[in-house]
């Protein structure tokens, strides 16, 4: 049955080569924890991706209840956490996932750095990876304003102060982020929501796509 469906699609769209690109390649011995236990360090990249998937999914589900509005944002978060079944868990997954993904990214970066895996020919992929790291940090930064609690508000005020301190473009950068030259409020929340939910994830997906394509093209760096 499944085979027939596959054949039907394959005849028309020729998916076997795509499938080959994704799945059919060899994995060298030195990254295989079954051969050397120390190869577990190669798991951090995959786990980062896994947590990213968790973040995307839990974020999608959270927006079913969340509203980005200073009157109601906190109330909706409080509601989904206290009244909705498993709300505590879904928000927990998004909250803790944000921390875990930073930890995993950090470990992945350290692995690549100390193995010197960023050297020729993988310079570009390293740079894309660092950009992914920045996007993740920005996602964390924009994300914690969204519940509109005390922590969200005051941490964002500080962040905006730092942005303002940048020479020459500081004022503009702050207003651009804030939506208003001085008030941290309705417009700030709407902007941070848009950045957190649309702009940064879009950038993240593009960067991750490039990252993965380059890994498949170049293969895993050899053993030390």
């Amino acid at each position: 049955m499944l085979q027939k469906m596959y054949d039907w699609i394959d005849e028309r769209v020729d998916i076997t080569p795509l499938w080959r690109d994704i799945a059919d390649h060899e994995v060298p011995e030195h990254v295989n924890p079954a051969h050397h236990f120390s190869a577990f360090v190669y798991c951090f990249g995959g786990l980062t991706f896994f947590v990213t998937v968790i973040q995307v999914l839990s974020g999608m589900f959270l927006t079913m209840y969340y509203v980005p509005d200073i009157e109601n944002a906190w109330r909706s978060v409080y509601y989904l956490q206290t009244e909705v079944a498993h709300g505590q868990i879904v928000r927990g997954m998004h909250h803790w996932g944000a921390s875990v993904v930073i930890v995993m990214l950090f470990l992945h970066t350290l692995r690549v750095f100390f193995q010197g895996a960023y050297k020729k020919p993988r310079e570009l992929n390293w740079m894309v990876g660092v950009l992914i790291f920045f996007v993740m940090l920005a996602l964390g930064l924009t994300g914690y304003l969204l519940p509109w609690d005390n922590k969200a508000y005051f941490a964002t005020v500080v962040t905006l102060q730092i942005a303002e301190g940048v020479p020459f473009i500081g004022e503009m950068a702050k207003t651009l982020l804030n939506g208003d030259p001085s008030i941290v409020g309705a417009q700030t929340l709407a902007r941070f929501f848009a950045i957190h939910v649309f702009f940064l994830p879009a950038a993240l997906f593009v960067l991750m796509g490039i990252h993965f394509i380059m890994i498949r093209k170049q293969g895993i760096s050899g053993p030390l």
């Binding site: 079944a85 868990i89 879904v90």
Partner: peptide, 14 residues
Amino acid sequence: MLAPMVRFAIDPVL
């Protein structure tokens, strides 16, 4: 991964 999220989403129905 999905079990808590789906239960979360269909809560109004239940």
